[in-house]
């Protein structure tokens, strides 16, 4: 710890910092028009994305009071609190099943639907319009409608099941923890199928038809055609669309909250609805910040690894 060493490092640091500043300034002076155009959006992001994010990070590592103010920085108390939370293990497991379960189901259900809708048949335009309805409709309102459909005595689902003689029971879908959890996943899948299908459909339509010609001459059957030619062509779009879907499912609030608000007994909560409860019902802002921070870091790492692995596989 000598004074001179410190001076040396700091002076060389200032020098390099000056260089960086100078090159930034030069870049902006020579190229100012695009930067000018970016300013409005940068200001907006700074105020309403970066500022809250930084706020959340500071809050995650601080003691907070009941209105969410950070009062003492540098504490891991929130994370300790989070780990000790009696629901957090369940919430984590539920979030993971909710996200990966719903995305996997959406892929499995959407691909065949896209293949079917890619055919020519009368009413294809109508089918496409119907397909898009769940995507266009306000999700919170659709979720409330599903809540009505799942109603035990008056709901349409039990009515359909009873009429088709599948069961005579009047199942209370949203009161049983396991059934309710299946129901919220179902509605999440319902709401994600249109986007996934329409992307697969667009991907299918962009496959150049001539790649099938050679296969036809070799006498390949339909299954081979699909497995060896169609699927590889869809790989790229599948990677991006699943990544987007996973991120969106992690952020999902508008399905669970209107349907169950996490009930019964926190068994349909995901991390977002639980976070909402922590902050606005228990006023445990500190713990909420910690959970928000953990979710963000997880998603960031996941996205980087996911794209790296799949891109490298692509070669």
């Amino acid at each position: 710890m000598t004074a001179t060493a410190e001076v040396v490092t700091s002076s060389s640091e200032t020098a390099s910092r000056e260089n960086i500043w100078r090159s930034i300034v030069r870049e902006i002076r020579e190229n100012h028009f695009p930067y000018l155009l970016l300013i409005p959006s940068i200001l907006c992001f700074a105020a309403l994305v970066i500022y809250p994010l930084v706020n959340t990070m500071i809050g995650a590592f601080s003691k907070t009071d009941t209105v969410g103010r950070a009062v003492e920085f540098g504490a891991l108390i929130n994370f300790r609190e989070l780990v000790r939370d009696r629901y957090i293990l369940n919430i984590t497991i539920q979030t993971v099943i909710f996200v990966f379960g719903s995305v996997a189901l959406t892929v499995v259900l959407s691909l065949p639907l896209a293949l079917i809708l890619n055919q020519r048949f009368p009413g294809a335009a109508l089918a496409r319009a119907l397909l898009l309805m769940p995507w266009a409709a306000p999700l919170a309102i659709s979720a409330m409608t599903w809540r009505w459909i799942f109603h035990d005595q008056l709901g349409a689902l039990n009515y359909v099941l009873n009429t088709l003689n599948i069961t005579q029971a009047r199942t209370a879908w949203l009161s049983d923890p396991v059934l309710a959890f299946i129901c919220v996943i179902f509605v999440e899948v319902w709401s994600s199928i249109p986007f996934m299908t329409i992307m697969f459909l667009a991907g299918l339509q962009s496959i150049p038809p001539h790649i099938y010609d050679a296969a036809k001459m070799d006498g390949a059957n339909a299954w081979h055609e699909f497995w060896d030619m169609t699927l590889p062509q869809l790989k790229r779009i599948t990677i991006i669309v699943t990544l987007l879907s996973i991120i969106w499912a992690f952020r999902s609030f508008n399905v669970i909250w209107p349907m169950t608000q996490g009930n019964p007994f926190f068994r349909t909560d995901n991390s977002v609805t639980y976070l909402y409860k922590l902050a606005f019902r228990s006023l445990a802002f500190g713990e909420g910040y910690a959970l928000a921070f953990a979710t963000f870091v997880f998603l960031l790492i996941f996205s980087v690894v996911y794209t790296r692995v799949l891109r490298s596989e692509e070669g």
Binding site: L38, T295, F296, L300
Partner: peptide
């Protein structure tokens, strides 16, 4: 321009956190 790629990546990163984080923060 020099800031182009970082800005595009920044846009992608903003997709990574739930809206509830913004709510909590503001």
């Amino acid at each position: 321009f020099a800031g182009r790629q970082p800005y595009l990546i920044f846009l992608l990163v903003t997709q990574m956190f739930p809206a509830i984080v913004v709510v909590l923060g503001v």
